[in-house]
Design a protein around this nucleic acid. Structure first.
Lengths: 228, 228
DNA sequence: CTCCAAATAATAATCGATTATTTTGTGATC
DNA sequence: GATCACAAAATAATCGATTATTATTTGGAG
């Protein structure tokens, strides 16, 4: 249930936490392929850890929908499907829409500043960069920007749900739109959404957010149907 | 992420799964009090298990919002607060409302039958019974009834969210409305909701569901403010 | 050849012991 | 008396080995 957090007080990250992050990243990048079996002893060996923290890490990823677990039969990377993607997109639209409206109601000047700042950071890194580091940086900033939009909503559970759903749809995008030239001006969409949020134009913001999410969703759906 | 499931094929429940169920029940009943520390070695001893399955069980409950975990500092029963309850209620209204509308769109005759059947089961057991077994039975059937209402929505993630939120609000109700004479005709409310769902009156159903959830919410809020 | 059953191998789950970290207690200093 | 440093105790996290379960192979029987 934790928002991927820096602990309030400076306590050392546990091996299990570190491992969950590494595995999450591998799953999101598609390096661990959807539906594939996660053989405990193999992963244990390749990450150089013991079983206890590994199993804990997998349970955390299970709760984020990135891993499936079955008693006595082990774990596998969550499979992908058009139906699942459609639901993720639909829920993102509804929940991020709700969160955005709440954020507009409650947001203050500091919140506006954080939106502008994260938008700026995002625009300074370019998507579809050659180096994986740059790509990873863009991904991270993109996630941060979307999180900031709803950060003032005063509904931590809702933020949690949105983060989980966002991760799930990011995985689809990163796997199926691997080196896909965007057919639209994504930075402009981000800027317009930020502007509507700060300008407290709730209906505009919700509509643009919906379109933004759904457009990406349709592109992924097309790629998903195409090859697979 | 699993809907509390009977495994498709008959594989033995793991100790970790059983333990998670037992702990969930103890937390929901308020036997493990909100905010209290869960000292691993104490629980380990009292449940007669080893650390590994215990820790796994606690992580599962963390993902359901019933336990809080902090690296290197252990676990505690999720605390309660008016703010958290308000968010849980709000999200239940929104998400169960959405799920109900979808279920009305997609539900077939079999679904109608399941609703009527679970309503009947629910009415045959009486809430606020003297024996804990009867009370537990009512709780279980009440949960099943609400789950059945949205079971045709074809959105497994959404069902998952609803189940989690329902568990959370049930915990509040069971702790704060311990032996509380209901001030309203709850069975009639259930019957009316079931009727509207089956009759495909989506707006009616959503409104009655909202009122049903919010009324209970207000009662809990009152109790929460009162003593504590 | 196909089906079943037992044997074997592979894997998951659990345990008990060890190590690392945090919390509590104690005494010294100001 | 308050504050810090250190020691001791409590607790959390991890490991390596063991046990239980599932999956695979093998060897008949029909």
């Amino acid at each position: 249930m934790s928002l991927r957090e820096t602990p309030a007080s400076p306590s050392a990250a546990t091996l299990s936490t570190t491992l969950a992050e590494r595995l999450r990243s591998a799953i999101m990048r598609g390096e661990l392929v959807p539906g594939s079996k996660l053989v405990l002893d193999r992963i244990r060996a390749s990450y150089g850890v013991s079983l206890s923290p590994l199993r804990e890490a997998l349970w955390r990823l299970e709760s984020e929908g990135l891993v499936q677990a079955e008693d006595q039969r082990g774990y596998r990377v969550a499979p992908v499907s058009a139906d699942n993607l459609a639901e993720v997109i639909r829920l993102r639209v509804e929940l991020e829409g709700m969160a955005a409206r709440e954020a507009i109601l409650h947001g203050d000047a500091a919140w506006e500043g954080r939106i502008l700042s994260s938008l700026h950071q995002l625009n300074r890194s370019r998507r579809g960069q050659r180096s994986p580091e740059e790509q990873e940086e863009w991904e991270q900033r993109h996630r941060a920007f979307h999180a900031e939009l709803i950060s003032a909503c005063r509904m931590p559970l809702l933020q949690q749900f949105c983060e989980t759903l966002h991760d799930q749809s990011d995985r689809y995008r990163r796997i199926f739109l691997k080196d896909h030239e965007p057919d639209r001006d994504v930075p402009a969409e981000h800027a317009a959404i930020a502007d509507a949020m700060i300008g407290r134009r709730a209906d505009d913001a919700a509509r643009m957010l919906r379109d933004h999410i759904e457009r990406t969703g349709r592109n992924i759906q097309a790629a998903l149907r195409g090859p697979g």
